[in-house]
Design a binder for these strands. Structure first.
Lengths: 310, 310
DNA sequence: ATGATCCATACTTATAGAATATGATTATGA
DNA sequence: TCATAATCATATTCTATAAGTATGGATCAT
């Protein structure tokens, strides 16, 4: 049976043109090397070297084999390296989900950037969805990890790791009385000063619809209650992003994570809240409890590092 | 040190998902197989299998390695096959020379065709030249073999193998008295009947110039002497083919190998000779005495078979 | 709970690769 | 021309390691 040893020995002899020198290079004696070469020739069924009085030289068959043997040997090294890289998580494919509201958070972009840098062999597929769908896809192994807001209960079989808690802002129509009262700060539609939740007691609230992302919805309502009123819900938008369109259309006000304030600026003014405790939108990373693959480990590591930085 | 055995065993275990079954398939016991797998894992520096209560399953690193290990194993087989084919002469590159007069001989075409069929892996480069140049190129290893006419002396270090002796024909200008006298046979300019060399005693002879192809030149002159006259040499053409152009131009007559009668028909008539012994143009195959490469052996074989057929 | 399945570990055996000694062949230089 | 050196091949011994045997431990199924 042919082994890599035969190829290694063969290449050495071919390169030296000399059995004795090749043996020295390989760190063995000349007779076993001669034997292994003969064994290879027997296996191939053809002479690979012409024995000359001083040294040996390749036959045509030997020349043909030399080329390919070199390739095989380097392919073996490449194969082992690839396996090592995969084990270290520098290679592989991941499917990552995120809630639409997380799509705009700088953390996601920075994680992707960081992973590209530290593990270029890992291919990422990103998939948007609402929190409950994402949790389901995690369970059914269609996703490897997901950025979610606050899942109501801790889903069994999954690790839900808190990353950060983001301040929530009030989104007002541009022409709203409160917006007119407070000066614009930057060009971004961000208002100067803070407002109390209680000031919005008479407003119509537009919120992300309940079944898909239960966490945020509940905490907003709870905060209103704490501020002394029960909010009037005008409309529940199917997607978190579309709440902003409804606000821009003047249909009501909304409370959104700060990272979403960077888009849909025309027609919308954003104001910080005054109330304590602060109303926040948490961001979590969820993944299965089982031992993560190397690539996923790498990914989680990148997420943590990006989380610390921001 | 990694050996192919490790890859073979690894692939078997990966495919079976089961060490014991894989061991049975490989014809060894389970413990040594487990050991070899462990050795491979140690060499790679990573786990390749997750040990489950019933069987084993690939890790990511294992999956990566499996792909490449399969490739390596099949590449090894391909490498050995390629070497075998080269040894059998079914693969390789040959440079073959031939004298310009041999270019028109059907043997050359049929050899090329036969070699294409029996050894498609052999690539042929054909090179035209005069006999003495070809002999030199054979010696300097720029050619592997050459079709030549009659080399004066047997060149040392070369084998010159006679292939066939071709009848020689007289080439006459179309309007020549002899051509007018004899009826045309086919449309090819071939004349009916034979003529004696002696009939050409008064003609001007156009012959291929001496230094490049001494053999034919000498035998033509010798034949004329035997027929009782010494030919008047009008012009010596630099290339054998151009002798025909000179004949067509009416500058004289020539004697050429029969295989050349198939071209330059307009303006030329060919006549067979009556004299005995027949004036013939031999065709030889020349190659170096040293043991020929497999591809050359194949080629020589094809030449001999084609020679027998024609 | 008990037996069956299956991988791992400990130890023994046997194979074959490596080392040593030597022979055969062919250049090379006196 | 002969002796010597160089180099590969052969014969024999040694040894490293792959294979085999026996058994243990974990997990699942009945």
């Amino acid at each position: 049976m042919i082994e890599l040893r035969h190829f290694r020995y063969f290449v050495a002899v071919a390169e030296e043109g000399h059995v004795t020198r090749a043996a020295a290079r390989l760190g063995i004696q000349q007779p076993p090397l001669s034997q292994q070469i003969r064994a290879l020739e027997r296996e191939v069924g053809a002479q690979l070297f012409r024995r000359l009085p001083r040294g040996v030289e390749l036959t045509d068959a030997g020349r043909t084999l030399l080329e390919k043997a070199r390739l095989v040997l380097s392919d073996v090294d490449l194969a082992l390296d690839a396996a090592r890289r995969t084990a270290r998580g520098e290679q592989g494919g991941l499917v990552i989900g995120f809630t639409s509201s997380a799509a705009f958070h700088p953390l996601v972009a920075s994680v992707v950037r960081l992973l590209r840098q530290t593990a270029p062999g890992v291919t990422l597929a990103l998939r948007e969805g609402n929190t409950s769908d994402l949790i389901g896809e995690l369970r059914s192994e269609r996703l490897d990890a997901a950025f979610v807001r606050s899942p109501v209960e801790r889903p069994v079989g999954l690790v839900v790791e808190p990353l950060l808690a983001e301040e929530m802002l009030v989104a007002l129509p541009d022409q709203h009385a409160i917006a007119e009262r407070l000066a614009k700060r930057s060009g971004q539609g961000m208002l100067e000063g803070r407002i109390a939740l209680a000031e919005l007691a008479e407003e119509t609230f537009i919120l992300y619809r309940r079944p898909s992302g239960p966490g945020l919805y509940d905490s907003i309502i709870a905060a209103c209650r704490a501020a002394g009123f029960s909010p009037r819900i005008g409309q529940e938008a199917p997607q978190m992003v579309s709440t902003l369109s409804l606000v821009a259309a003047g249909l009501g006000v909304s409370v959104i994570p700060a990272s979403m304030a960077r888009l849909e600026t025309n027609g919308i003014a954003y104001a910080r809240l005054d109330d304590l405790p602060r109303l926040t939108a948490p961001l979590h990373l969820a993944y299965r409890e089982e031992k993560p693959s190397g690539a996923l480990e790498r990914f989680i590591d990148c997420v943590r590092r990006s989380g610390d930085a921001s």
